[in-house]
Design a binder for these strands. Structure first.
Lengths: 222, 222
DNA sequence: ACCATAAATGACACCCTGTGCCAATGCAAT
DNA sequence: ATTGCATTGGCACAGGGTGTCATTTATGGT
């Protein structure tokens, strides 16, 4: 050290260097899950494949079922930021619709990986169970926004209901998207919101219109 | 037995008599949960308290987290029967609204117990997780009905979405009802449906009307 | 009375997840 | 070299859940 340049936070401040990363464990784990099925892979196997002890795995992920979720907290923050930037003149449901649609727009090259992730999450029973816990954060962000708009506390009935509804739209769209490689997730979600905003119309022709919209190749002339 | 009456299926056809029942295990378990907290009670403790081996517990319930659900499959069947009896001229959402409201009407003397159950289910993380699996059956029944009405397969987008929406209404209502001993569950659920059917109106006065409706003591002059 | 049959129980062994605890490791600064 | 420190790995342990098998407790026939 020549002692001139100040490196107050030199990326590894102190102590023994890490033996792995969240990303590596996640990659190794997802690979094993895809090849052998989620419940046929033990944490021991993942740890071995990553060259790390079982104990260390649990220092990076609180649970085996957290693996497929990546850093979901960050994603949720992204949604919160998006919503906080919405101008006041945009109606509540329109704002949510747009925000949720954009939240689920993934780069073309990441689509397959994302589908695999969600497919696992909404297929494997243990992960389905876990998803409700994870999505609580997401719902909370929606509820906060609705609460601001309606002038109520976040925990009030209507904000929480709006959070549930938005999540319903997303999850229903996920379920359709996962097994259909040609479908477009943002379009599905937008359609879900359209349906929700005209539930009473479904029996009177709206359903047919929406179904036709989904049948089109990709463009979304709404 | 004087030996005259024919009993072709005498309730216990053969073999060693059962040492316990679902109801007994459930009662014993729920009592322990209430006094010590769900996660502080082991299956061993429940089994001991019921005078049965741990192994036998798992012959009656597949999981510790299934205990608070009673015979949910039967409840779901009840909902299915209700819906199948709805005349064709009743609009889709009106039928669901009514059916879900009635499904959640419990006799006055069972209210406290039911609240305790749901409170546990929607409070304890492990049980929250389990709830999604359980409610899948419930959602499926709603989706079946919507599918019939819309002339689509049950697994189509819109029927599944309607199932999600109905569940949202119920769950949001549960969450408000649990910590509020004076609130009325059917009224909350009915209000949730009212809100869902007029989401765009929430910002323009509907929210206030609904909130006021809930503030009233009990009667439901809709 | 006796014996076959059948269903449920209990005991045991086992694997897995998740956690607390502590000594060993590897790197940086002194 | 020594010290400081975060991370690792090993170990023991509680608890959930499952497969297996001998044992128990009834019924029904002879």
């Amino acid at each position: 050290m020549t002692g001139l340049d100040a490196t107050p936070v030199p990326d590894r401040p102190l102590g023994r260097p890490r033996a792995t990363t969240h990303d590596e464990l996640e990659a190794v784990g997802m690979d094993l899950f895809r090849r052998m099925g989620y419940e046929n892979v033990s944490v021991q196997q993942i740890s071995d494949a990553a060259g790390v002890s079982r104990r260390t795995f649990f220092r990076y992920f609180p649970t085996k079922s957290d693996l497929p979720w990546g850093d979901f907290g960050l994603e949720v923050d992204r949604l919160r930021v998006t919503l906080s930037a919405v101008p006041d003149h945009v109606p509540l449901m329109a704002a949510l619709r747009r925000a949720v649609v954009e939240f689920n727009r993934v780069p073309a090259e990441a689509v397959d990986q994302h589908r695999a992730r969600l497919g696992l999450i909404l297929t494997e029973p243990e992960l389905i169970a876990r998803s409700l816990l994870k999505f609580q954060l997401w719902r909370e962000v929606i509820a906060e926004f609705a609460a601001r708009r309606l002038g109520m506390p976040t925990s009030a009935f209507l904000p929480e209901l709006v959070g549930e509804i938005a999540l319903s739209a997303a999850v229903a769209a996920y379920r359709q998207w996962i097994p259909a490689p040609t479908s477009d997730l943002p379009t599905l979600i937008d359609t879900a919101f359209a349906a929700i905003l005209d539930l009473d119309g479904l029996e009177h022709g709206t359903a047919a219109v929406l179904a036709q919209r989904l049948a089109r190749p990709d463009g979304d002339p709404a």
